[in-house]
């Protein structure tokens, strides 16, 4: 992946597939670290499967026997001297409190740190692809905070779906403006 925002797009799609209705995409920066956390209330994973998810030969896809999404992210974080973790509660074991939290910490000063890239595009792509999910995005750094909660947009929009073209373009413009004011 050429941009970290592509890993974010890829990993957040796992939450969509897990049937989550709320997904948090939280980016937190300090001067030296960049932390991405994707947290959902989807079906979760059983401990046996969870242990194997960083293995490329473990996947839910049916068209291939390999799944590279999580291994890519883990590698991207660890090659900067950062860390990766994934925690999950499966719905059968935790009926009222299930879901998955994926966290990757990057060392921004490492030469192997992949730039974030076009995060606005990743966020709009996630919303366009799954407009019924509540997406709660936030990106906090020492001198700025950008955030978006699609629930707030839905309250204004009523029946108009979030994947309506004009709505998507508004979201894109809104986020771009928020980043420009950094």
């Amino acid at each position: 992946m050429k941009e970290l925002s592509l890993n974010i797009l890829d990993i957040a799609k796992n939450s969509v597939k897990a049937g989550a209705d709320t997904v948090y995409v939280t980016l937190t920066e300090t001067d030296d670290t960049f932390t991405m956390q994707i947290s959902d209330n989807g079906c979760g994973m059983k401990p046996d499967f969870l242990r194997t998810v960083t293995d490329p030969f473990s996947t839910t896809r049916t068209t291939r026997k390999v799944g590279m999404g999580i291994p890519f992210l883990k590698l991207a974080a660890e090659q900067t001297g950062g860390s990766f973790s994934i925690e999950s509660k499966h719905e059968s074991d935790y009926p009222g409190d299930h879901g998955t939290v994926t966290t990757a910490v990057f060392n921004k000063n490492s030469i192997d740190f992949t730039p974030l890239g076009d995060i606005v595009s990743s966020v709009t792509t996630l919303i366009q692809g799954s407009p019924d999910i509540r997406w709660i995005f936030s990106h906090t750094s020492p001198d700025n905070e950008v955030s978006l909660d699609t629930q707030e947009l839905k309250e204004v929009l009523g029946d108009v779906p979030l994947d309506n073209l004009e709505v998507i373009l508004w979201i894109k413009g809104y986020l771009e403006e928020a980043y420009e004011n950094c």
């Binding site: 992946m1 592509l6 890829d10 590279m68 999404g69 076009d118 692809g129 073209l165 004009e166 373009l169």
Partner: peptide, 23 residues
């Protein structure tokens, strides 16, 4: 197609181009 393979190969800008151009 927006799985890991598609995203890594550049599907995100392709999708956005379709959305914007169709509009």
């Amino acid at each position: 197609g927006m799985a890991t393979c598609g995203i890594a190969a550049g599907a995100r800008p392709v999708l956005n181009a379709f959305v914007e151009e169709v509009g």
